[in-house]
Amino acid sequence: MNREAVVPESAMDGEEFVRATEPYRRELLAHCYRMLGSFDDATDVVQETYLRAWRAYDAFEGRSSVRTWLYRIATNTCLTALTHHSRRVLPSGLGAPEPDPTAAPVPAAPGVRWIQPVPDALFGPGTEAADPASVVLAREDLRLALVASLQYLSGTQRAVLILRDVLAFTAPEVAAMLGTTTAAVKSTLQRARTRLRQLAPAAEDITQPTAPEAHHVLDQYIAAFQNADASALEHLLRRDATLEATPFTTWFAGNHTCVPYLRTWVLGSPGDWLMLPTRANNQPAAMTYARTPQATYHAYGLAVLTVTTTGIRHIHAFHDPSLAELFGFPPTIGPA
């Protein structure tokens, strides 16, 4: 005898919850990354956000959109996380640049929490994206220098600035999300904008050339590194270029110190490095491999370039082999 299949009510609720909330996962991840400066922390908070949302979904009365409701949960979860951890930094946030290019890099003390890069592929359009505009929002304002600057704001200032200026929520919407008044939101936003103007890079430092031009600069950078060609690197770097690399506190400002440091401590011989092009934080980047005595290449980390129309303004290097997996690269390549 045939029996009609009965779908449990909990399963139907689960399917409805997924349909209603899943289209916003990528942009929520970008939002939490801006707030926290860490892909790992952002991933954890997004998971917690969806868990809290699932538990509260039956009580959701539709007084706001699902998207606004999820941002309220995610933002407050981020603010809670920020009360338990120190801010994340780049080496340039820990002190002045090193004037001596022959100085050995100094490892940071244990416990320093570093800004983490994120692959552009995580925020590209996907089949789950219900609104193309939301994907664009998720890609904007992810550049490393701006994410690092945001970490100097208080948690509330950070939240208000991102929700208002990046995501374009209204002041009353933000007030409702944070449990405060519209007047308080406007005052906090003004203070946050003032502080960010003091911290953020100049306009020319974040203005990108066309995509083909930036890609061409990245190709030249990779070729110079793989050939251990310091002169080619000097030609690519602007005179005011800066270089910093985690997990070291040592960093350099000015072509005159960056290039000698690279020549002394990093470049080595032709073939010591292998680099593969990628993109991180909406910037050109190179996954970096170091050659072993067995002629294989092991993942070393990631170099993220700030490219302007007049050359490379900044090199952020991250010594973290685990980034290879995050960016979709193998941990080992070779033999050469």
Rank of each mutant, 00 (worst) to 15 (best):
247 P>T: 00
312 I>D: 04
77 T>N: 11
122 L>Y: 11
231 S>H: 15
12 M>A: 15
84 H>D: 15
66 V>Q: 07
7 V>M: 10
114 W>S: 04
219 D>K: 06
53 A>S: 02
196 L>Y: 02
108 A>N: 01
114 W>R: 08
33 Y>G: 08
288 T>I: 10
6 V>A: 15
249 T>N: 06
63 R>L: 12
273 W>P: 10
109 A>L: 08
59 A>G: 13
88 R>M: 01
61 E>Q: 06
41 D>W: 03
81 A>Q: 13
233 L>T: 03
240 D>I: 05
68 T>W: 04
88 R>S: 02
14 G>H: 10
109 A>I: 06
209 P>D: 08
4 E>V: 10
293 P>H: 03
229 D>P: 01
213 E>D: 04
79 L>C: 06
53 A>K: 00
121 A>M: 11
148 A>I: 06
150 L>H: 04
306 T>A: 11
170 T>E: 15
297 Y>Q: 09
92 S>R: 04
272 D>T: 13
66 V>C: 04
170 T>Q: 05
257 T>Y: 01
206 I>E: 08
36 L>W: 01
298 H>D: 13
330 P>N: 00
264 T>D: 05
149 S>N: 03
210 T>W: 12
149 S>E: 07
31 H>L: 09
20 A>S: 07
303 A>H: 07
214 A>W: 00
94 L>S: 00
328 G>Q: 01
191 R>D: 14
172 P>H: 00
285 A>F: 00
255 N>A: 09
206 I>G: 13
43 T>N: 10
203 A>T: 11
100 D>L: 02
130 A>M: 13
201 P>Q: 03
196 L>Q: 07
12 M>N: 14
237 L>V: 09
109 A>G: 11
177 M>L: 11
253 A>P: 13
175 A>S: 01
36 L>R: 00
144 L>W: 06
42 A>D: 09
160 V>I: 05
272 D>K: 08
231 S>I: 14
199 L>F: 14
318 F>M: 00
92 S>E: 04
198 Q>E: 15
236 L>Q: 01
73 I>D: 01
307 V>K: 04
232 A>P: 05
307 V>T: 06
191 R>C: 12
256 H>W: 09
125 P>F: 14
119 P>K: 01
136 V>A: 08
103 A>R: 06
66 V>M: 04
121 A>W: 12
325 E>I: 12
158 R>Q: 07
269 S>L: 14
113 R>P: 02
287 M>K: 02
288 T>K: 14
88 R>T: 01
90 L>H: 05
301 G>D: 05
204 E>S: 12
96 A>D: 12
78 C>Q: 09
157 Q>Y: 12
304 V>W: 01
34 R>L: 06
129 A>C: 14
153 L>S: 00
183 A>L: 15
17 F>C: 06
56 A>H: 02
139 R>F: 13
230 A>V: 07
